[in-house]
């Protein structure tokens, strides 16, 4: 099996700061990490490889520092990594990103046919989850999003069965391979990487491709030019005026609160209360 995993380096949003004067994100304040969902995608690839053998190639688009995200994937157990990095890719939205990644994957595919492509459910800097399905559409392979379990891989028959999360439950889907899966975090726990992987990763130099290294690229579909969406204004989320504090002793606080809640009596009428 040849499994390709798309991975992105993202600023760690839990520590990112907003510059209050310009309302822009101070990216330098946040360390860059491997998108957490993508770590689970790589882990899943490792598990599939453990059962079926084969090879895992990660592909990433980003600035030169993104090789650190690729190294992290090598730690988890990926075999190879490719970074596509070029000024021409800068400012890409999801449509332009999926185009560039598709071109890179096509090149990887020429070297060795691909059975499965894995992506994260979404990247935590954009929260869109559009790149995976975009790649699938461009490569004319079926996308399956929100995968929480890979039930069965029949590599010889060229079929996979997966569990896909939906509201109120899940569905089991079967697809021919190659296909593209985007994975939820609950699909697995990323294992603590073995030391030999750590050493391999510390040494690892991924291939870095520029636009020139890719074949048949339509430059107008790349980067800012190839992106239909643009960011208009940005502003800090409205701060509410703050809570109206209910004063008094506990008894009276509770009485007041109940009368406030009961202004929404229809909520309770439907169910009759208990």
């Amino acid at each position: 099996m040849h499994i390709v995993v798309c991975v992105k380096q993202v600023p760690d949003t839990k520590v990112i700061k907003v510059n209050p004067k310009t309302n822009t994100l101070d990216r330098s304040s946040a360390p860059a990490i491997l998108n957490p969902y993508d770590a689970h995608a790589v882990e899943e690839a490792v598990r599939i490889k453990q059962q079926h053998g084969g090879k895992i190639t990660v592909v990433s688009m980003g600035p030169p520092q993104a090789i650190n995200a690729i190294r992290k994937c090598i730690e988890i157990g990926a075999d190879e990594g490719v970074l596509i990095s070029d000024r021409a890719f800068a400012g890409a939205d999801t449509l332009a990103t999926s185009y560039a990644l598709t071109k890179a994957i096509e090149k990887v595919q020429k070297q060795e046919p691909i059975d499965l492509i894995l992506c994260g459910k979404h990247a935590i800097d954009g929260d869109t989850g559009q790149v995976g399905p975009g790649i699938a559409r461009r490569m004319s392979i079926p996308p399956i999003t929100n995968v929480i379990k890979v039930e069965n891989v029949a590599s010889k028959e060229g079929k996979v069965e997966v569990r896909r999360k939906i509201e109120n439950g899940y569905e089991i889907l079967q697809s021919t391979t190659p296909c593209l899966l985007t994975v939820e975090k609950e699909i697995n726990e990323v294992a603590y990487s073995p030391l030999p992987n750590m050493i391999k990763a510390a040494k690892y130099e991924p291939a870095v491709w520029s636009v020139k290294d890719l074949d048949d690229v339509d430059m107008t579909k790349l980067g800012m030019k190839g992106s239909p969406t643009v960011v208009g204004k940005m502003w800090p989320p409205a701060k509410s005026a703050g809570a109206k504090l209910i004063e008094g002793d506990a008894k009276s606080q509770v009485k007041q609160l109940i009368s406030i809640v009961l202004e929404k009596r229809q909520l309770f009428e439907q169910k009759g209360g208990r």
């Binding site: 294992a191 603590y192 990487s193 073995p194 030391l195 750590m198």
Partner: peptide, 9 residues
């Protein structure tokens, strides 16, 4: 010996 699997070097 480190705390990682196969952790000897």
């Amino acid at each position: 010996r480190t705390d990682r699997p196969n952790g000897e070097v």
